[in-house]
Amino acid sequence: MTHVETFSEVLAPVVFDLSSLEVFYGSFRAVRDVTLQIRAHEITAFIGPSGCGKTTVLRCLNRMNDLIAGARVGGRVTYHGVDLYGTQVSAPEVRRRIGMVFQKPNPFPKSIYDNIAFGPRINGIRDRVKLDEIVEKSLRAAALWDEVKDRLRSSALGMSGGQQQRLCIARTIAIEPEVVLMDEPCSALDPIASARIEELMRELKNRYTIVIVTHNMQQAARVSDRTAFFTAELDSQSDQRTGVLVETGTTAKLFSNPREERTENYITGRFG
């Protein structure tokens, strides 16, 4: 079964295939009915108002929701045709292939070098020369090398917020993932630092598949190829707000000619 799916991947480079995905936190259904595909070497943006479940869906893609007590996933998420929540699947292995950059920069309280080398070391790389090489390559890819090459041994906590976030990106790509998930990576940064990260995303797109959650519609319009718009609906029975996927499409189409009125209202700033 698996290799049949792998074969079809060559024809249509779908990386993630989500069907009727729903996520519960305890008895609370945070998001339901998410059916969408994420394609290779594209930037897919998740947009929508707060509480619409976009981060929740993103965290399903590398099983980070496993870490939240009481979280439960329904429906199906496949990654290159393999069920991510299958019994044979190891979450650490999933996360090694699907990296994540968080909303707030979260460097380890270690040196810049050790931050980058952490991932490769987990994977058993001990050779100094090899590690040096990976650190330099990753920092260059994250456009950080020239700024920090003389202080690789100093603490990562002494860097500016924008540098820390680029360090986190460098740390993520140091393990050579296939996908990079970004959860509002610029929300804690000033516009100049944000612009650098966006530029970086465009460069990284050639080598990685990128999924980004953003509150900033201009950012989604600027960097993404495909956009998924989520919103929160009030469930009349339980009186709880549940996130739903409203529509997906190429970014150009979704922003210029959305199918749904709710999407249009949101992107024109009439709500949310």
Binding site: M64, L67, R97, G99, K104, N106, F108, G119, N123
Partner: peptide, 27 residues
């Protein structure tokens, strides 16, 4: 120890034991 540190480690594919030994306890 802030939870984002643990998450950063898990997101790099580290196991729980590894995260505790190399990130949580040193912090």
């Amino acid at each position: 120890v802030p939870n984002p540190l643990r998450e950063a480690s898990y997101a790099l594919g580290a196991s729980k034991a590894r995260t505790i030994l190399t990130i949580v306890l040193p912090a």
